[in-house]
Design a protein around this nucleic acid. Structure first.
Lengths: 241, 241
DNA sequence: CTATCATTGTGTAACTTTTACACATTGATA
DNA sequence: TATCAATGTGTAAAAGTTACACAATGATAG
């Protein structure tokens, strides 16, 4: 069976054996929110060539490992976290992007609550960096970070994912500051509050902020935990003004 | 120089040499519009295993070739076209997705005017298929097609890219039918026309449709050719109703 | 040459969403 | 007890979206 032009797998493999010489990695852009700033988790490069440069959390994908699984593994290994979502953003494969050979990397992003997930920040040279203050990075990681930030900006405008960056209870001011940090814009306070309260995503927990030097705001909790990991279209909502 | 924990590239390569055993491919989802239907360009699989199944246009990425370049090469080789845009959508890398080994594929989509670009459809088993009629495909290509279609749907709602699918001169009806085919919805004719004429993207070329059996519509041309290949945020516009 | 057909071309009013904007209230602090 | 820095709240104007109907046109068939 099969026409003269059809190939068996054996033929295909042997004809193309020289193509099976590339490596795949995953790189994770982990965003956090702290001190009114959007931050990203970086690690000191372990390559001499990039001595003193910061890089994303990444690793090579094993031969019998799916890329998504590899991204969760990286996150787990580097931070201990395994209850967060990771979403694929883009693949970077420029020929000369890695000094060790042809390594193509798949970029993922994730959002975590810095305060709640106390990382084992000790063992590694692992640190949170304000996104706005990062200018150079190892490899093409600066570009990857920019692409993921753009992705984050467009996602938060349509889906209720920012709650992943906040503690369980938060004030509307914290929420607004977070949107402003991500989008890089100022938002109108009254309209912002109106919109979110209309949306019916929040439960008023009947508590007030602590340790603020001014009138404390009410605290809210995000209603639908199950939506935290999804970005379904039906939850889409534009955050404007 | 370098601390005890820093690695040289030589160390890195030798430690990880077993990872350099994967192949990367690109797969192109080429959309066209004909006979009021959204179509996609497919080729008969050249693998015996997928005898009689249709597959996307793809090829392995060469060792010293960038993925984007590979996607343009594939398109050029298979169709002769080189003046269209291709945009990366998603990377598919399930361990068992390819019978010949670990092949991770980067999916791209493109939009072309079927009538204008007369393909060399002869040499290969290359054909246009209505997107709605494709149920099974080789490899995981059905999934890739779905993902690219979703991407197309969200892109056309925000950017003026559909013009790539149309001949230079077209009627508002053709334009509307195209949107309906892509989005899978019916749109209100009066509102649609109003919106596009408001948008100021079209020039009235002062000609009428030919060969229609009813009152002919006016023909328009898309104003900004330079926007054809871009999907910049500033051109964003929602196509509603 | 006339009637029929299928489709084009056009406007308005109701509704919804977005935007701009100011002042009294609260709790912490000195 | 006054001051401070923020919270909490409503409304009106503007912009955008939706729903909807009828005359005009060119092709075609008798």
């Amino acid at each position: 069976m099969g026409t003269a032009t059809k190939k068996t797998i054996q033929q295909l493999v042997s004809e193309n054996s020289n193509y099976f010489q590339m490596a795949i990695s995953v790189d994770c852009v982990i965003f956090g929110f702290d001190n009114n700033e959007l931050k990203v988790l970086l690690i000191k490069s372990d390559l001499e060539e990039f001595h003193n440069e910061w890089s994303l959390l990444g690793d090579l994908v094993h031969l019998s490992e799916n890329p998504d699984a590899a991204s969760y593994r990286v996150l787990k290994e580097k931070t201990g976290l395994d209850d967060v979502f990771l979403e694929q953003v883009h693949t970077f494969g420029e020929v000369d992007r890695h000094p060790a050979g042809r390594v193509i990397t798949i970029a993922y992003y994730s959002l975590i609550d810095i305060k709640h997930h106390k990382l084992k920040l000790s063992h590694n040279e692992l640190h949170w960096h304000p996104v706005n203050e990062i200018h150079t990075m190892a490899f093409d990681h600066r570009k990857i970070l920019s692409t993921c930030l753009e992705q984050l900006q467009s996602k938060v405008s349509e889906h209720p994912i920012v709650f992943n960056l906040l503690p369980e209870k938060f004030s509307l001011r914290e929420l607004q500051t977070l949107y402003e940090a991500i989008l890089g814009t100022k938002l109108d306070r009254r309209n912002f509050r109106k919109k979110f309260l209309m949306m019916n995503w929040l439960t008023d927990v009947n508590e007030l902020e602590q340790n603020v030097t001014h009138r404390p705001g009410r605290l809210y909790r995000f209603k639908m935990r199950k939506h935290l990991q999804t970005t379904e279209r039906k939850n889409a909502v534009a955050i404007t003004y």
